[in-house]
Design a protein around this nucleic acid. Structure first.
Lengths: 335, 335
DNA sequence: ACAAGAGAGTAATACGTATTAGTACGGTCG
DNA sequence: CGACCGTACTAATACGTATTACTCTCTTGT
């Protein structure tokens, strides 16, 4: 009771397997067939419930309509807010294009698991950090891939779809400057992901343009003492700019420290966030910008599809999406 | 610059492709090989950077460590709270077992797309409703599958992992009875999914046991007029029991109607929900029960894996997980 | 000296489909 | 009547790996 193969259809219809393949495969090679035979084959295929084996067609280096999705962190963390909208976008666009998705679960990250991605026609990669050499290998082999999030590694050879953190971060700092702030503290992730570097570039550029005094602190969020914050305020700092990533570590740490120090926002200090904290239930909306996650997912799928099927749109392998500002209520005007 | 094949290694090492396969494949067949040859092959493979082609291995032996996931509604709806924890559980367990996931996007639901699931070793199905005849076809072909959610169709032949809605719903009604309620209105989804039937069974059973007067309303949530609710209260109803599913339609409709009617909860009427509404931000915690979604996902993957690989645990093709009660604050005691 | 057996490896084949080259048949033209 | 052509199809093969059956060469025992 195994699955139905072309050979079974051939036997029923009284033709050869090759004929079945020609009829069912759309006859790309231009083989001449009588209409009668064609119909007989189609009828038999229908009756037996034939389904092509995607694996063997892929073996012949044909297309599979399978797109890979490789996440370097769990795609479904316990906090739903991070990757979720990205995945939603990926799913929606993949469905629209008639592609299925293979999710490669990297949690059990044997490094060689990444090669399994080749089962698909192409693969998306998702994660703040990415194993560059493995990607280089795939790229060299001509395997279509797209990273979600800007990637500067490998001299920009990595196709990606990212958010324009530089512009968005600069805009946030500009808002602070226009509100009269002169002395700003900037808190960022300790590690050097491209997305963090982009934000820093935007922040520094805008601060320089506006003549702000800017000091930078790298923190993982756990090492922020209330006393430190008090020290900054005593020092004349009137606004904090805080990076926000998937983990929310820095932002959560900052919020905790602010509360512990008894500092009120935006009464005692203004707060701007480079991103969009999850939840939104507790307290006032924090000023910052939206990360267009859903759009990122969709754009990444479209780009990957175009790489898989060359000639269909999207010739540019990089794309940066704008981040709409979130006005929020945590930036106060100072004299 | 094509990829390296076993044949290339064979040429370099001066052996046959078969020998390479034996060395690299772990020699399951017990072919005798000298240590020297083995090392030569390994060295050549290392030097050339060999990577096995997952496609052709799958072509041989139908095991490929791929589990399908077929959702009959988008897996990532705009409201994150529904399927999300289930997917989180699925991903976590799949990763733990070293399996990858194929997500079949059913949104473009041509009915024959379901056959594509056979690309995987087995498949999970997720959704309140399920195309029974298609599943029957897969089952008849001996294809391993597991539904997430209890399925009574096909005389119980469909393997599934579900939540024990009967017991949990009965417990909720029991709580109302112990709080002194005698007259209860029960609002449920209009369609006949097994999960709805289970809840109804639990509710009716508990109501009968406790001697409650129970009336049932089927509604999709949009057709609940405030006047209707007022009528029930005038009629002596002191508690509402409301079904809660992925869409939240009935519960949201009820909440809207209650607010519109100016009815306070639990002051004017007690409210119990058969499930766990999303969010949790607004208002008091509603009394009901938790759906163990994450555990459902994990259990489903384990069961599917055991069906794919017979002999490894989980001999029973059905499993019901308990739903922990949520005390909440919306059940008042009445004289 | 010859059969039996072990050791080392390979040829052949299977998996399911797509493609290429070719065969068989009938008809037409010169 | 044979060369030639068009039609309708099939045989063979390729894709990359895993497995089975087989060959060939030594040892060893009697």
């Amino acid at each position: 009771m195994g699955r139905v193969r072309q050979a079974d259809i051939a036997r029923v219809a009284g033709v050869s397997q090759a004929t079945v393949s020609v009829v069912l495969g759309g006859n790309r090679a231009g083989v001449r067939l009588s209409e009668r035979t064609r119909l007989r084959v189609l009828e038999a295929a229908e009756r037996l419930g034939y389904v092509p084996d995607p694996v063997s067609s892929r073996l012949m280096s044909a297309r599979n309509n399978l797109l890979g999705l490789y996440t370097f962190t769990p795609a479904f963390p316990d906090i739903a807010d991070g990757c979720y909208p990205i995945l939603a976008g990926v799913e929606a666009e993949a469905a629209a294009l008639g592609k299925d998705l293979i999710m490669f679960t990297a949690s059990s990250a044997a490094p060689d698991r990444i090669r399994r991605t080749r089962l698909a026609d192409g693969c998306l990669f998702l994660g703040r950090h990415v194993p560059v050499d493995a990607l280089a290998g795939l790229l060299d082999a001509g395997f279509p891939l797209v990273c979600i999030g800007r990637r500067t590694e490998l001299d920009g050879r990595i196709p990606h779809v990212g958010a324009d953190y530089v512009t968005a971060s600069a805009e946030v700092v500009g808002r602070l400057a226009r509100a009269g702030h002169r002395r700003v503290r900037y808190l960022r992730e300790p590690d050097d992901a491209p997305s963090s570097g982009d934000r820093e570039r935007g922040v520094r550029g805008a601060a320089a343009d506006a003549g702000l005094s800017l000091a930078v602190t790298r923190t993982d969020g756990t090492d922020l003492a209330p006393a430190t914050i008090a020290g900054w305020l005593a020092d004349g700092v009137t606004a904090l700019v805080v990076e926000e990533t998937d983990t929310s570590a820095v932002f959560e740490g900052t919020r905790r420290a602010l509360r512990a120090a008894g500092v009120s926002v935006p009464g005692d200090v203004s707060l701007a966030v480079l991103g969009r904290p999850p939840g939104g239930t507790a307290g006032p909306v924090v000023s910052g910008f939206e990360v267009p996650r859903r759009a990122l997912g969709r754009a990444a799928v479209r780009l990957l599809a175009s790489l898989v099927e060359p000639g269909t749109g999207e010739p540019v392998p990089h794309r940066l999406l704008p981040c709409p500002p979130v006005a929020g209520e945590t930036i106060a005007t100072v004299a």
